[in-house]
């Protein structure tokens, strides 16, 4: 049973961390929403629509952050055959897909009044859409096999292939002419965003990160339970045929 040794330790650790992550999510979300909607000024060019940024940009960061973590987990799962790594990627995928979806929709809602279009096929928007499909493809792939181990392996390979998309998304706005503007916060020479607008952005980013940790702990717990259920059923079925 050594394969469950680590998950058991993980379950204890996550049970201890979960209340802190959940508490941080609530506090940072309240702070972030207050700063986004009341505690920050309108933009000198974009007016009140700048408030969409406080959802859009943290969601975009999370979509890349979650995917990168999943890809690292996939590498660990493939090389060291660590069962928790496989389960982490599977547990995180729907959350990452959710953040990517939020990023795409809020970007569209922002682009419509400011750019004058809901969607354009520029390098940034297209590469983020591909990221969304990578998430969906991964989720479909891990469930497409009768043998969950094979599904995990196929999913891990897809995650690693898809990792090339992450630097493409990040640097698309610098490498090519895009309608999307370059980065405002993570750029050379420091943020080009006023501190009064950076505060809600960072608060929301913290809230989203804490949310991700909380939900991924819960989902990992579910995945570990599912695996136990599967083991029990398999052994029960084996007993059934023998008896």
């Amino acid at each position: 049973m050594h394969r469950f040794a680590n998950p058991a330790r993980f379950l204890r650790l996550s049970a201890a961390l979960l209340p802190w992550c959940a508490g941080a999510t609530v506090i940072l979300m309240i702070l972030g929403l207050w700063l986004s909607l009341f505690g920050s000024p309108p933009d000198y060019q974009q007016g009140e629509t700048v408030r969409i940024m406080y959802i859009h940009v943290p969601a975009a960061w999370m979509s890349l952050f979650v995917y990168t973590n999943m890809a690292v987990a996939a590498a660990v799962g493939l090389v060291w055959k660590h069962p928790l790594a496989d389960l982490f990627a599977k547990a995180a995928a729907p959350i990452g897909a959710g953040f990517t979806f939020v990023c795409l929709v809020t970007g569209s809602l922002w682009g419509a009044p400011m750019w004058g279009t809901w969607w354009v096929w520029d390098a940034r928007l297209t590469s983020v859409l591909i990221l969304f499909f990578l998430y969906l493809g991964y989720m479909a792939l891990v469930n497409a096999f009768d043998d969950p181990q094979r599904g995990m392996k196929a999913g891990n390979v897809l995650l690693l292939v898809g990792i090339v998309n992450v630097p493409i998304i990040k640097f698309s706005v610098d490498w090519w002419n895009t309608l999307h503007q370059p980065a405002s916060v993570m750029r050379m020479g420091g943020p080009s965003i006023d501190p009064s607008m950076l505060a809600p952005l960072l608060a929301m980013a913290g809230a989203f990160t804490a949310y991700f940790l909380s939900v991924v702990f819960l989902r990992l717990r579910t995945e570990i339970n599912q695996r136990k259920i599967q083991t029990l059923r398999l052994s029960a079925a084996a007993d059934g045929t023998r008896g």
Partner: peptide, 29 residues
Amino acid sequence: REVLAKHDEKYMPPEVSEALKQAGVYKNP
């Protein structure tokens, strides 16, 4: 046939852009 606006990576409140303009350090987008 279609005109789309492109904006830059700068975000600031109107007062700040006003103050920068007056101080002469305002950088045109």
